[in-house]
């Protein structure tokens, strides 16, 4: 199977690899997937308390090229967004941007789940009630 140029680009030069200090109150961490499934994604956001914007986003991913590209892209998109804006990122946007084939759609689902999990963690740490929302269910 050949990879799209965009996947290859993110794979060769992954953006925002790293670890944020999860003990900080304004850092939210999402860890999704499982080693048995062949992919684990950890995505972290650091929120500027004053503006409510995501000032930094970092990831580490155990997985195939598409999983790494999906998380790299997700961190790029997250930076500068507010939490509410970040919640609108949909897995199909990632599929489209990276031209993922059907067998790799789960990588984008994982990235969306990781974003939501990081936001949930941030909100819990800061006592922010989660608004009632229709969370996207992963389909597998």
């Amino acid at each position: 199977m050949a990879y799209s140029d965009k996947v290859l680009e993110h794979f060769k030069n992954p953006q925002n690899v790293g670890t944020l200090d999860k003990s900080k109150k304004n850092v939210g961490t999402g860890l999704v997937g499982a080693p048995e499934c062949g992919d684990v994604m950890r995505l972290q956001i650091e929120v500027d308390d004053a503006t409510g914007q995501i000032q930094d986003a970092r990831f580490k991913t155990f997985g195939c090229g598409s999983a790494i590209a999906s998380s790299s892209l997700a961190t790029e998109w997250l930076k500068g967004k507010t939490i509410e804006e970040a919640l609108t990122i949909n897995n199909m946007d990632i599929v489209e941007e990276l031209a993922l084939p059907p067998v790799k759609i789960h990588c984008s689902v994982l990235a969306e789940d990781a974003i939501k999990a990081a936001i949930k963690d941030y909100r819990e740490k800061n006592g922010i009630m989660e608004p009632i929302e229709a969370t996207t269910k992963s389909t597998h």
Binding site: T19, L31, V32, G33, A34, V40, A117, S138
Partner: peptide, 24 residues
């Protein structure tokens, strides 16, 4: 491994068997 969160956890001494993974 530099990209892998589970490698980092392993290096930090986290028992990976006892992490409650969110299987998807």
């Amino acid at each position: 491994r530099d990209l892998s969160p589970i490698w980092e956890m392993y290096k930090e001494g986290v028992d990976l068997e006892n992490v409650s993974w969110k299987q998807h």
